[in-house]
């Protein structure tokens, strides 16, 4: 069944009377996403379906206002709309024309060069965030869009779960914030995400893009207990690196494996991982 908006279009139109066209795009866990035209420009509106997310939106806006990167989605403003006696935040943001990593990889599997180039773009975004003590907490193939379908130009979006390490926490731990399939061990253990939790999520994402399978889920497995996933994350015989495509599997493994280290300190920083990606690109070491 195709997704349907939880907040009706009339309510969105009332909040943005200047919009000339509006088209429903998607319904995510936290928000409805609309494609709109305002002042002749195509943009998106993200309507938060839970009224309690206001603090997170404020944090997202504060975080994004200091970043000007082609790899991080630009956010312009936040308004409010009333629906069913509740107030919902609406984030107006840049429209990026292209498929998500998830969509693009389903259309055709990326080769090693594309995966590394994409990783470099996402790592540039993460470097910008991490430099500001911001943890994204929800890096996954659905949360990055390839601008113009170009694997070299990924744009990270949906900073709704962002954690500012300097600000008072919005989350009371123990808790799990993010998407379970892309969480690092510390998040699965209900601990706060750290900067390098994003690196772990990117490692899972890159493995998934490369092989079409999750690194800690066996072929044909449909349900797994979290304890079993944690065991596999710590085990030496997971992931099954043979699943990576040839040619380029050894280089890809050398790049991804450190990101999937169990302890955060054993993973590279975003800056360090970016340097490795750029080195690989410059030397085309996967050939």
């Amino acid at each position: 069944m195709p997704p349907t908006p939880r907040i009706p279009v009339d309510a969105v139109r009332r909040a943005f009377p200047e919009l000339t066209t509006i088209e429903f795009l998607d319904a995510g866990g936290q928000s409805d996403v609309w494609k709109v035209a305002i002042d002749g420009k195509t943009e998106i509106l993200r309507v938060l379906v839970k009224a309690t997310e206001a603090g997170r939106v404020a944090r997202e806006m504060a975080a994004l206002s200091s970043i000007d990167s082609p790899h991080v989605m630009r956010v312009y403003e936040v308004r409010e709309l009333e629906h069913d006696e509740a107030t919902h935040k609406v984030v107006r943001a840049e429209f990026i024309d292209g498929p998500s990593l998830a969509q693009a990889s389903q259309q055709s599997a990326p080769d090693v060069a594309a995966v590394i180039a994409c990783a470099a773009g996402v790592l540039r975004a993460l470097s910008e965030l991490h430099e500001r003590d911001l943890v994204h907490r929800d890096i996954k193939p659905q949360n990055a869009i390839l601008r113009g379908g170009d694997w070299r130009r990924p744009v990270v979006l949906d900073l709704g779960y962002i954690r500012d390490l300097v600000a008072p926490p919005l989350t009371e731990y123990p808790a799990r914030i993010g998407t379970v399939q892309f969480m690092a061990p510390e998040q699965l253990r209900h601990e706060p995400a750290v900067l390098r939790s994003d690196i772990y999520a990117l490692g899972i994402t890159l493995f998934l893009l490369s092989s079409g399978t999750h690194p800690f889920v066996g072929i044909g497995e449909t349900q797994l207990e979290v304890d079993e996933v944690l065991r596999r994350m710590e085990a030496e015989d997971w992931p099954d690196w043979v699943r990576l495509p040839s040619p380029g599997a050894p280089a890809l493994r050398r790049f991804i494996e450190p990101m999937l280290a169990y302890e955060p300190y054993e993973r590279p920083s975003a800056r360090k991982a970016l340097a490795r990606a750029e080195g690989l690109i410059a030397e085309e070491q996967w050939r």
Binding site: H130, E131, D133, L165, E186, V194, L195, R196, E263, P264, Y265, R267, S269, R271
Partner: peptide, 10 residues
């Protein structure tokens, strides 16, 4: 200890 240090700015 190392996890805390690695979470500091680069």
């Amino acid at each position: 200890l190392l996890n805390e240090i690695s979470n500091l700015p680069d």
